[in-house]
Amino acid sequence: MASLKINEGNFEAEVLQSDVPVLVDFWASWCGPCKMLGPIIEEISEERSDIKVCKVDVDENGDLAEKYNVMSIPFVALFKGGEIVKKSVGAVPKSELLKLLED
């Protein structure tokens, strides 16, 4: 499944209220390392049916970025039960992102 575009309107329903863990990629169009991570995020989205993968454009959703203390991007966070349980900052390899999904 392709990743889901998230904004302030659907964040509550899609991320906070989700029954399954949600991997959220905070990114921006001007951020090179974010673009590097983009295809990897999509791969994970296609490969993992046990989680939901979402993308938040920080330019369009500044309040969400501020709420979760996003100060460096790419910022990838794993949400469980409405809270961030793990996160990764920077353009890390896929293996590092998959570690976020290990219990």
Binding site: W30, G32, A65, M71, S72, I73, V89
Partner: peptide
């Protein structure tokens, strides 16, 4: 505090400030 205000890339993270 890396990623929580400490940054090594102004062009990447500057916009948050």
């Amino acid at each position: 505090l890396s990623g929580l205000g400490v940054s090594y890339c102004a062009t990447c993270d500057g916009m948050f400030y």
